[in-house]
Design a protein around this nucleic acid. Structure first.
Length: 290
DNA sequence: TAGCGACACCGGTCGC
DNA sequence: TGCGACCGGTGTCGC
């Protein structure tokens, strides 16, 4: 499950390998094409697969960057600029190979949904087991309004004030804090794993209402979120199920997780509890988190 | 009209 | 061994 640190790792690995290169050919899988024929927006959103393939052909990758959990491809063709936005969904992964046989794990090899032949002869491959990933080819970012609603990057200077302000809004103040910090309009890139960890580190109960937490504790929580996210980036991400970097390697952050998926609290040895918040499993320590 | 909840999208994994 | 239930990030739809 890629969250901000995993996506950051993908971008850092991918960028030096594809920036400046051109896409000679783009091919989507038969699965994607067939799903579109059935009226589903499978992986490629708001565009017919054939259109996507045609438009991607001849694009030069000017720059690769991350925004929240999205990968932004700044593209150029015939002096016109485009933005290709990619989300990894639950199980998306990128590979750069000479041949798809180099993808060692069968489950990734069996679910290749987009292939881009690069000017260097390499193949840039997007594999996605559950097909929750997405591609949107845009002229500019405002063609997809939800992207404009995203909170600032957690490492930006204004992110803390933005978070504190949002917590006080009627829309959020009566919601469980875990639901609030996982909302991309409040904090960018904080998914279930890192939210669970940050709440544990800050000693905040996941179900506590956002409006019932002191400013000081909210600031502590925000710092904890930034810390787990940067630790995640340093460790190359968490590999909980299907996340792989572009070399097919797993990350190391899962070994640093103290609460996500744990049965016993590492601080006080109490049995952890879990509850469903906003439809997601939330693990916490009933003694350490209030 | 804005806001919110329900639902759709999938296949690996787990438990019965 | 086989089958059904479950899980989850995001957008969209309908109330």
């Amino acid at each position: 499950m890629p969250e901000l640190p995993e996506v950051e790792g993908v971008v850092r690995a991918l960028a030096p390998n594809i920036e400046g290169k051109s896409i000679l050919e783009a091919t989507l899988s038969e699965t994607v094409c067939e799903a579109h024929r059935q009226g589903k927006q499978c992986i490629v959103k708001n565009m017919e697969p054939a259109d996507f393939e045609r438009k991607m052909r001849g694009m030069t990758v000017k720059k690769l960057s991350r925004r929240a959990k999205y990968i932004f491809f700044d593209l150029e063709k015939n002096n016109e600029t485009f933005l290709m936005v990619n989300h990894l969904g639950m199980t998306g992964a990128w590979f750069i190979v000479q041949h798809e046989n180099e993808i060692l794990e069968e489950k990734f090899r069996n679910h290749i949904h987009a292939k881009f032949s690069l000017s260097t002869g390499e193949l840039l491959i997007f594999s996605d087991i559950r097909r929750f990933g997405e591609f949107r080819l845009l002229g500019t970012i405002d063609e997809h309004p939800p992207l404009l609603q995203m909170a600032p990057e957690p490492f930006d200077d204004q992110a803390l004030d933005y978070f504190l302000e949002k917590c006080g809004l009627p829309k959020y103040k009566n919601k469980p804090i875990k639901e609030v910090i996982m909302d991309g309009q409040v904090i960018s890139g904080c998914g279930n794993i890192y939210a669970t960890e940050a709440l544990f580190r800050a000693g905040v109960h996941p179900a506590r209402k956002a409006g019932r937490i002191s400013k000081k504790r909210k600031i502590d929580l925000f710092e904890a979120i930034k810390n787990v996210l940067s630790e995640g980036i340093e460790m190359g991400g968490s590999t909980i199920s299907d996340y792989r970097n572009i070399n097919g390697e797993a990350g190391g952050m899962q070994h640093r997780l103290k609460m996500y998926g744990k049965k016993v609290c590492p601080n006080c040895s109490a049995k952890t509890k879990s509850m469903i918040i906003a439809g997601r499993t939330s693990v916490y320590c009933p003694k350490c988190q209030h």
